[in-house]
Nucleic acid binder design. Structure first.
Lengths: 260, 260
DNA sequence: CGTGCCAGGTGCCGT
DNA sequence: ACGGCACTTGGCACG
């Protein structure tokens, strides 16, 4: 089901949007509006965006996305569960089509005002599939639990998501010399705060086991910037560069050839 | 400029996409494709998404966004500066329209394969406006610098973004008793890592000024969960609940009435 | 260009 | 509902 209008009047867009996006039957519908609009947002912050051509998507779950011609992220938006209403407004002589969205917690509202609409379309999307993803942090933790040797020979993992006062330790275990080991895993390049986190876990563990001679802390990440290594060393912590391979050899070359 | 096709064949979409999205003249153009597709992504992670109706946006800066009928975030995407190519593929008997995108750093590729296209449209977006936003963390810092009394009577701010070994202190000053004060500001609910950050700043400052009798650390955020208060207290740190007001009175009531 | 860090972060899963 | 945290985080500012 696809319906659309080219260069509609504000009143026509308004009628169109109401027809396809209101009521229970519109549950699977998505509205796409392309035209010259300005955006006003007030809520956790406040923002203004002047007149310009944008693509706006409204989903029946209440999501509203305003996209400029550049950028991977929407310039303005409302999350799901937002109330959306369509209306026309009289703005000094000319008529405007307005997408008004509002939610209570936190109180936030957004106005998208169109002075011209190039195209509006409504689409019924049939889709029951969910994304299946590999390579999340939990997958890396899985991988290490299944084969602790990738971190260190003789390592034995005893706990996962072990709770401490300062937060949850990703992996907890003992090395070949029975010394406790705390492992913090990052799927992307670690920041100094990851070092602080690990240090806090180690200190917390030492505090709770006053008798323990030593606790090791290992930061495990796909890359390890020099500054991070310095911070780790200063804090008597260790690191392992560990990258899970989801794609084998870098096929950049062969792929690039496809772009000729 | 808006061009579109309803229920085009894969070959027609391919030709359409190439016509409007290739070359320098397409700099301001955006492509919208609505249809039944599946998505394959390989890069920092790997993902698969089965067949279903989606809205796909391709921008001329290389951004690609795949949106399902629900959710505020794209289910799959490529950021700006991605290379995008269009092609047709023969998949067991039927022909497919494929949006293929690729980038080098990090190496990531995504295939969006359409088995049917309900609508494809191309739009020239004229837009030179940028978002003007109020209420960012820097605005809150501005506010406190302009009137330190909102944090504490007699407080005097001396430094902003003061660099330390562990990172940059948002605000640095002295209280009415000339005791140094380190202030960490969060615009949203703070996490334990904010406490660790603040503690690191305080320790670093004490380390550099071995003679200093005392340094105060204050975490300043719009809300302060119990666990955070506990952590702060344990670490001899303080907190202020401080919320900047960008919208005056909560006009939820009057606004809700508009929804009747 | 790498590095660090804020974001109207969003989304997910836990209690 | 609130809290805690990962994310293909994205985006920006700075060395």
């Amino acid at each position: 089901m696809t319906h659309m209008l080219l260069s509609p009047t504000p009143a026509e867009v308004n009628e169109f949007a109401d027809a396809y996006m209101r009521g229970m039957r519109s549950k699977d519908n998505v509205l796409v509006v392309v035209g010259c609009c300005c955006v006003e947002y007030v809520g956790r912050a406040r923002s203004m965006l002047g007149w310009g051509g944008r693509v706006v998507i409204v989903k029946s779950d209440g999501s509203v996305l305003v996209h400029q011609k550049v950028g991977g992220a929407p310039v303005n938006w409302q999350p799901p569960d937002t109330l959306v209403r369509y209306r026309t407004e009289a703005g000094n002589g000319i008529s405007l089509f307005v997408i008004y969205s509002y939610r209570l917690k936190p109180p936030e509202k957004m106005y998208v005002r169109f002075k011209t609409v190039d195209m509006v379309s409504a689409h019924r999307l049939r889709d029951d599939r969910t994304l299946r993803i590999m390579g999340a942090e939990s997958d890396i933790v899985d991988r290490i639990m299944g084969d602790p040797g990738v971190i260190e020979e003789g390592l034995r993992i005893t706990d996962r998501e072990k709770q401490t006062r300062s937060g949850a330790i990703d992996l907890f275990g003992v090395d070949r010399d029975h010394i406790p080991v705390i492992i913090e895993i990052k799927r992307s390049q670690p920041t100094p705060s990851a070092v602080l986190q690990l240090k806090a876990y180690v200190l917390d563990h030492q505090h709770r086991h006053t008798g323990a001679v030593r606790v090791r802390g290992i930061l495990c990440a796909p890359s390890m910037p020099v500054m991070i290594r310095t911070l780790l060393t200063e804090n008597k912590l260790e690191w392992r560069v560990f990258k899970c391979e989801f794609e084998q050899v870098d096929d950049a070359q062969s792929t690039l050839e496809e772009f000729t």
